[in-house]
Amino acid sequence: MQLRPEEEINLIDHGFMASRAKLLDIAAFLDRIERSGQARDYRVDALCEAIKLLDQPGALRARRILEALSDPSQGPIPEAHTKDAAGAYQGPAS
């Protein structure tokens, strides 16, 4: 059941500048790691793949990006060797 705000506001006025700033931060991050020769990393590859999903209509971009960055396997892993998560899926632990 959807919940609409009682008062309709201009969401472009509300969110454009913040989104513009975040987009420039992503661009500058990619420039920075390319200049420093550090761009070859599975997390960066995953980020660049996920960025392509911004172009997909259907108002499911955030969900699709989260899914693209998720472990697609099913069932528990035999043992946890770390407590940490990286933000992108590297593939099954070897």
């Binding site: 989260l66 960055l69 472990d71 697609p72 933000g87 992108a88």
Partner: peptide, 12 residues
Amino acid sequence: PHLEDKLKGTKL
């Protein structure tokens, strides 16, 4: 779970 582990973990 966090980040890439959340979707699978939530289903489990």
